[in-house]
């Protein structure tokens, strides 16, 4: 597995896509950090970008890489190798190359800007963590979708649809639901709904630090417990880990059964 992982990683690290992606983050973060000067504002802007862009690029690149290396995969399948190793190796290679782009692209300019000295260090740490987790989760989802669908147009379409659903539509539905049933106690429900979407989860992880003053204004006891203690942090991290393992396991399952 490590060989395939290594091959995929270095293959991707040399590709123009990854370099472009890295370059984009470098340019954006430096521009934000050095032009705005207000660190908390930088966090918010970066958060919006990371939460939208990481899943999008991960979905697209995950599906694209699978479809492009189709012949290579068939070649590998002919070798005495375990299928799990082939697909996990590729998946981790893709996910890690994306994560490296985020880590370096956001991390380097901020380190140069002197973020270690400012009070926002924890926010940036969570931001980077979110970027990495989202890259893993969405490239895994994309791999799974691509494995399910031979037709690459359909696969791409579904991967992008999955992104669109989690990034935008889901929040709209949640809002609709909360407004429609506002006469009922919805605290636990709203937390559960947020836990079911990795993008919302990542956002809440950042909010727990950034907007805690506002979050504490909410009246409900469940909310207070969730937000006020380390419970919230632990629960969101736990849910994110669940989100992290599910696509990987699904990739494994389908890889073992699929008839190529």
């Amino acid at each position: 597995m490590f060989k395939i992982f290594q091959y995929t990683l270095f293959d991707l690290l040399r590709s123009r896509w990854t370099l472009g992606y890295l370059g984009f983050y470098l340019a954006l973060t430096s521009a934000l950090a050095f032009l705005s000067g207000d660190t908390s504002k930088v966090v918010i802007s970066l958060m919006n970008v990371v939460l939208i862009l990481c899943p999008l690029v991960a979905s697209m690149l995950g599906a694209m890489y699978y479809y492009n290396s189709r012949e290579f995969i068939e070649l590998l399948l002919a070798q005495p190798l375990r299928r799990t190793h082939i697909f996990w190796g590729q998946y981790f290679g893709v996910a890690l190359s994306l994560s490296l782009s985020v880590l370096l692209g956001v991390g380097i300019p901020l380190a140069a800007y002197g973020i270690w000295a400012s009070g926002e260090i924890w926010n940036f740490f969570v931001l980077l963590l979110d970027g990495v987790l989202l890259s893993f989760i969405f490239s895994g989802l994309a791999f799974w979708i691509a494995l399910r669908h031979e037709n690459r147009i359909k696969g791409f379409g579904l991967a992008i649809l999955a992104w669109l659903f989690f990034a935008v539509i889901y929040d709209g539905l949640v809002l609709l639901l909360l407004m429609e049933f506002r006469d009922y106690p919805l605290e636990a429900a709203s937390i559960c709904l947020a836990l079911c979407n990795p993008i919302d989860l990542s956002r809440i992880l950042i909010l727990l630090k950034l907007d805690i003053s506002a979050l504490m204004g909410y009246t409900g006891a469940v909310f207070r417990q969730f937000l006020g203690s380390h419970w919230g942090m632990a629960l969101s991290l736990g849910a994110l880990l669940l989100w992290l393992t599910t696509p990987a396991l699904m990739v494994r399952r389908i890889a073992q059964r699929k008839d190529f």
């Binding site: 935008v168 809002l175 909360l178 506002r182 429900a189 919302d200 956002r203 979050l215 409900g220």
Partner: peptide, 12 residues
Amino acid sequence: SPESIVLLRSFF
């Protein structure tokens, strides 16, 4: 709907 605070800063 106070619960919608979970959607704070979301893209939507």
